[in-house]
């Protein structure tokens, strides 16, 4: 497989997780600082099911996704029915609690030293197939009735609820689906690393996921994928100066918010770009005409 293949697999995993966060933060407008918790849930579920119970890895991955989704749903009910930063605060609490449980439930998770001996089922084809299927699923979701409801909740929840959307339901649904994506990503991570540890899924990982979505553009799926690629590669390239990595992340986050809060892509998708350019052109032409008349 080699180093290069490894990076591609990592890229696929990070992209799947980032898509989950993108759905929640980019398309539904809910801030999260704890999505690594769902990755941890997925990873540990898969690891325990395959190693301890001999479940086939494919089923175990799906189980990882479903467990994360369930937990996300349960956390969503009390926090997302309220407007305000309740979910953001709860998400930090969640990621810390999950880490504590994983570290202290020795008999099940083997504690802080990590869970060894997982089958290396995440090969390059597996990772690529998962990425393609999950991306197609996400594109369809975003362009569906549900996707429009998510965006409506983000842009104006009052108007959305006046139009008859149950905004609380859609916000919680969005969280559950994004939990599912992160759970799958975590499960694939377990199969790729063959060894998982609670510290792999800490606040820093959560921050990284949120940063990727912000870099890529809030509300752009292809932007998220692009940013995820760029960041995974940049992290690999700049391993020697990794102590500056977080500093640079933070600086860029602030700079993007101050200078261009829409991120690289804004709400545009790559496949809209040709359409977009012609749209910009016609708009400027029209603008010119208005100026003349």
């Amino acid at each position: 497989m080699g180093y290069f293949g490894g990076i591609i697999i990592l890229l696929c995993i990070n992209s799947i997780a980032a898509m989950g966060v993108s759905l929640l933060t980019g398309f539904t407008g809910i801030f999260t600082l704890g999505h690594a918790a769902y990755m941890a849930l997925g990873a540990y579920t898969t690891a325990i099911l395959t190693v301890q119970y001999g479940v086939h890895w494919f089923l175990a991955i799906l189980a990882g996704g479903v467990i994360s989704m369930t937990i996300a749903y349960l956390i969503g009910i009390p926090t997302l029915k309220l407007m305000g930063d309740y979910y953001a605060i709860a998400s930090i609490g969640l990621v810390e609690s999950i880490r504590l449980i994983l570290e202290n439930w020795q008999s099940l998770t083997k504690g802080a030293r990590g869970y060894p001996g997982i089958e290396g089922f995440t090969t390059l084809p597996v990772a690529l197939i998962f990425l393609v299927v999950m991306t197609i699923g996400m594109i369809n979701l975003i362009n569906s009735r549900y996707g429009r409801a998510f965006k409506a909740c983000r842009d104006d929840y009052l108007a959305a609820s006046l139009l008859g959307y149950n905004t609380a339901f859609y916000r919680i649904l969005s969280l559950a689906i994004s939990g599912f994506y992160c759970g799958i990503a975590g499960a694939l991570m377990a199969g790729f690393m063959t060894f998982i540890q609670p510290v792999m899924f800490d606040m820093m990982k959560s921050t990284e996921l949120t940063s990727v979505v912000v870099f890529g553009g809030l509300g752009s799926l292809s932007g998220t994928l692009l940013a995820s690629t760029v960041i995974t590669l940049v992290v690999e390239l700049f391993r020697p100066i990794s102590q500056y990595r977080m500093l640079i992340y933070g600086g860029i986050l602030v700079a993007i918010m101050v200078l261009r809060p829409e991120g690289i892509m804004g709400s545009w998708e790559v496949w809209d770009l040709s359409k977009g350019l012609s749209f910009v052109r016609t708009k400027s032409k029209r603008g010119g005409n208005d100026g003349l008349s």
């Binding site: 801030f31 953001a88 809030l218 500093l247 933070g250 600086g251 986050l253 602030v254 918010m257």
Partner: peptide, 14 residues
């Protein structure tokens, strides 16, 4: 407010 939240996260990391 989402933009302020993200900027504050950035500042805390910085």
């Amino acid at each position: 407010k989402l933009y302020l939240l993200i900027a504050s996260l950035g500042m805390s990391i910085v």
